[in-house]
Amino acid sequence: MFDHESIASVNPLATRDEQLANIRQIYPPEREALGVVAIGIELVDPPRRT
Rank of each mutant, 00 (worst) to 15 (best):
R49G: 10
R49T: 08
I23W: 01
E32L: 12
Q25R: 13
I39W: 10
I26L: 04
E32G: 15
N11G: 00
Y27E: 03
V36T: 10
R24L: 12
F2D: 07
I7W: 03
N22Q: 12
N22A: 15
I41H: 07
R48E: 09
F2R: 04
I26P: 00
H4P: 01
H4W: 05
E18V: 02
S9F: 13
I39C: 07
I26C: 02
P12L: 10
L20G: 02
S6W: 05
E18W: 05
A33Y: 03
A21L: 07
S6L: 07
D45H: 13
E5L: 15
E18A: 08
E42K: 15
E42I: 12
P47K: 01
R24I: 11
V37I: 15
D45I: 04
A38W: 10
A14C: 14
N22L: 12
R16S: 01
F2G: 09
I23D: 00
V36A: 09
L20D: 05
P47A: 01
N11E: 04
L13N: 15
I23G: 00
A8G: 06
E5P: 00
T15E: 01
A21E: 10
Y27C: 08
P29L: 02
R48F: 06
E42V: 12
R31T: 08
P47Q: 03
D17V: 07
D3H: 15
V10I: 13
E42G: 06
I23E: 02
A8R: 09
V44K: 09
I26A: 03
P12T: 06
R49M: 11
V44W: 01
L34M: 12
P46D: 11
D45K: 11
L20W: 05
R49F: 11
R49V: 05
R16V: 04
Q19N: 11
I7N: 08
R48D: 02
Q19I: 07
L34F: 13
D45Y: 13
P28G: 02
V10L: 08
T50C: 08
S6D: 13
G35P: 00
S9D: 15
E30Q: 14
G35W: 01
D45C: 08
I26F: 03
L13S: 12
V36E: 12
Q19M: 14
D17F: 08
I39A: 08
A38P: 03
P12A: 15
A21Q: 11
Q25P: 00
A8V: 11
P29Q: 04
I26R: 09
